[in-house]
Design a protein around this nucleic acid. Structure first.
Lengths: 336, 336
DNA sequence: TGAATTTACTAAATCGATTTAGTATGTTTG
DNA sequence: CAAACATACTAAATCGATTTAGTAAATTCA
């Protein structure tokens, strides 16, 4: 009557070997020619004492943890948390658990997190990477663990990617503003060299250049959204000719809405607004905000499918794939 | 030149015993009288080959994982994700990692999640529990693992709690509406027996009863927010005398705002609004929405502190504590 | 009937750590 | 100078699984 249930205690209690119990546990009993009588005996006993194998011990022995490490920018941002939940759900169905955490776009924190995940020996990684972790991610890839990167492309990292068409989407969104009569369109982004930001900027630049329109680009530091409001106010004050703004992320747009509100500007009469990334707030805001909506479910689905297929078959050489998904453009009141 | 670094390979490479290496690794070298020369030799080598002990093996042996399991209702809800991030941050500083997941208020899913966390042998639990998991949580407590419950009280579970004063907060919020001239105040809640919901309802009931005001209570099923909008619309249509609504959660309020918008009602002229739980949207909405704001940081801080202290000293008997925190009431335009 | 094969199982190594209970020296001390 | 005590280490058990390479008995085959 010990309170420690292990494969050994079961074997002892039943007077069989641990090998036998293990075979039964892993469904290899038939294959290994354990008699049906004995199989039943073991199964019944396991059921009776409500035995669960130690995932820890199993992982130590097999080298597999059935855990996928998910690293996002900020789990409290709806864009990321939605993706996280969808990935979690799909992984769950295939017997994988997700552990996730936020980088807050902090290189050092991310390096530490990758270290932690290595420690825990996760089987695979889905990462939304900040700048400066190319080396660590390349090490992961080299170590043979599947790595799927989302949202942004790292030029020096060869692995699987799931991206959206940032350039085309931003081009289209900017053109939408142009077609609605806006001529002095600003682009508000963060001070980052992340590919998705650069692509969005390029889309904006192409559209404005094609018409010979002036360009107003404001870069804001990633952290501290209070400052963002102030910076946007002073940016707009310094260039009063600006008649529309294209925000490169949802949180920048939220800061922008605060700024616009405090300056008593009317949307879209005084200033048109379009945002990259949708957000429940944008639909409910008065006026509602036009936005580029990313296909979170498709992103999650592609990411987890690629990862799971890599986990099944050890990665076949360097044949990595890059999936580029289209966005959808949701026209609302703020841009007409 | 093997690529497997383990304490054994290090011992072999250095011609010492694994015991010695282990003592050095765990800072017990002095205590165990390992010579300074040898300590340095081991440390240097470890540094050189960038060795990291296997967390898995260590946990298997020690029974400690340094992982805390956090179970919330919905990680994509800003209230929960904010708490999650704050807990994560504080735990991290004490050398603990957090793994979290969402119950979606689903009893079965929660039971499975608890099972998964038991498998992974997390050292402690912070749980925002749905109905119907009293048994499982009691088992955890009995097993000696520290368990801190947040947000809601489970009558039959004796453990540590961090709660807010739901009754008083709801009473105050309702009275605020009354003081601003509203007389037919509805309470929109979810169909749940969770204590926090019952307390909020009781606060509403007490305030309305004191003035002899009529009560309008609408319960909505937790899932499917589309239906929530429809239900609120029909609820309001059936009782046109309602002149204010107190929403019991932020997501109900969001559905309520959609409903109110689609009915072309003006806030607060046609209908006053107050919400339990704050949300960025409520500040930016036009008009801005009055709300009861929960002290997420204090909740997180208390939860993790209690848990960490339990982890340090094995739980001293049944002396559990319940912390009840005050909320703050943020008066905005929607209720005057 | 004896050899070959199949059936039904098990001993022991292993994953990578921690920890108890040593041992073999060197140094004090009475 | 022998007993007592430090000093500087290590052998081996252990945590709880998986897996390889067996073995003994029963059955089939020639």
């Amino acid at each position: 009557m010990s309170n420690k249930n292990s494969i050994n205690s079961i074997a002892k209690d039943l007077g069989v070997s641990t090998t036998t119990v293990s075979f039964v546990l892993n469904g290899k009993a038939q294959e290994k020619r354990i008699s049906d009588k004995l199989i039943k005996k073991v199964l019944d006993y396991i059921e009776k004492i409500d035995y669960k194998p130690s995932a820890l011990a199993r992982s130590l022995r097999t080298g597999k943890t059935n855990i996928i490490g998910l690293i996002v920018e900020d789990i409290s941002d709806p864009f990321f948390s939605t993706i996280a939940r969808e990935i979690e759900e799909k992984a769950y169905k295939s017997g994988y658990k997700i552990i996730y955490c936020s980088t807050e776009n902090d290189t050092k924190k991310t390096q530490e997190l990758i270290e932690v995940y290595k420690d825990r020996q996760v089987d695979g990684y889905i990462i939304i990477a900040p700048d400066g972790v190319e080396r660590e991610i390349n090490d992961l890839v080299k170590s043979g663990k599947p790595v799927v990167l989302l949202d942004r492309y790292l030029p020096n990292v060869s692995t699987d990617y799931v991206l959206v068409d940032n350039f085309e989407s931003a081009y289209k969104a900017t053109n939408h503003l142009i077609e609605n009569g806006f001529k002095n369109i600003a682009f508000v982004t963060i001070n980052s060299l992340q590919s998705q930001m650069i692509d969005r900027l390029s889309g904006y630049e192409k559209a404005t250049k094609e018409r010979g329109f002036p360009q107003f680009v404001k870069e804001i530091a990633y952290h501290d959204s209070n400052d963002a409001v102030k910076h946007i106010i002073s940016f707009l004050s310094r260039s009063p000719e600006i008649d529309a703004i294209f925000f490169a992320t949802n949180y920048l747009c939220v800061s922008g809405l605060r700024a616009i509100k405090s300056m008593n500007l009317q949307i879209p009469q005084n200033i048109g607004v379009v945002c990259f990334d949708d957000y429940e707030l944008f639909e409910l805001y008065s006026p509602s905000i036009t936005s580029v909506s990313q296909p979170t479910e498709a992103i999650a689905e592609n990411a987890i499918n690629i990862l799971l297929s890599r986990l099944k078959k050890p990665t076949p050489g360097n044949k990595h794939q890059t999936v580029v998904l289209p966005t959808s453009f949701i026209i609302r009141e703020s841009s007409k």
